[in-house]
Design a protein around this nucleic acid. Structure first.
Lengths: 130, 130
DNA sequence: CAGCATCCAAGAAGATACTG
DNA sequence: CAGTATCTTCTTGGATGCTG
């Protein structure tokens, strides 16, 4: 926990970022993490190191471009480790960093909730029609 | 908890949706919930009922259009309650449903983590340059 | 195998004007 | 106040072809 200066207001003292502020960099991180493929990558890497193709096979419907782009975002944010072995053919391994483990935990919790509660949501959709 | 048939495999028995499956409806729900404004709406409504304009003011940078569209998605998914009072000028209140309280909890956990750990991420960005 | 570069389509998002 | 309608812009995402 960081120390709080007297000048800080109550609402600012706890958090360092503020998603409700338009120009806060946290918005970008949120974007990467909650992006269409970012979520899946983070969850997939929870059960261990994966190679590029492994990830691609595992996540239905991702293109090479988007997979590599999403991986780069997450790597730059410090959530993912990329290790390239200098062999032919190329061999690259992706894994979570300690920081990545933390976010992925939160993301996975959300993903799990959704997977478990899809029936409720679908039931609600059905009611709309009636 | 649903009952599990003998035919189900270990990995399938717990969850009803599967985000790794391309055509699973859970992907749509995830999209709504993790959308740029969906996250903010869900988090904002955690501290009580809000009117349309209240939400708009609170969330930096949303357009009327996107706010109303995002609200509609979340309402259709059963996460949000919309109550319109038949008065002039119009008065509409948005709040979380019990189901919405649950997702928003997960979403808020993620949002909080990001706001708190922005410094780490930014520090990592800085290292890339060097 | 693991990608990058390029081009293109679709959808998300924004600005503005208007309505019950 | 709480939207809708419309138009435009930008980003996301996909297809294809090429490379170390």
């Amino acid at each position: 926990m960081k120390t709080v200066s007297a000048a800080q207001t109550l609402s600012e003292q706890i958090r360092d970022g503020n998603l409700f502020a338009e120009q806060c960099p946290s918005r970008d991180v949120l974007k990467h993490v909650t992006s269409r493929w970012g979520v899946l990558i983070l969850v997939a890497l929870r059960d261990g190191t994966h190679r590029f193709s492994d990830l691609r096979r595992k996540m239905g419907g991702v293109s090479e471009k988007m997979l590599s782009q999403s991986l780069q975002w997450l790597e730059l944010d410090g959530f993912i480790n990329r290790v390239a072995y200098p062999v032919v053919p190329p061999h690259v391994e992706y894994s979570l960093t300690p920081l990545g483990e933390e976010v992925s935990e939160k993301v996975a919790a959300l993903a799990n909730w959704i997977e478990l509660n899809i029936p409720q949501v679908l039931a609600h959709h059905a009611k709309q029609v009636a």
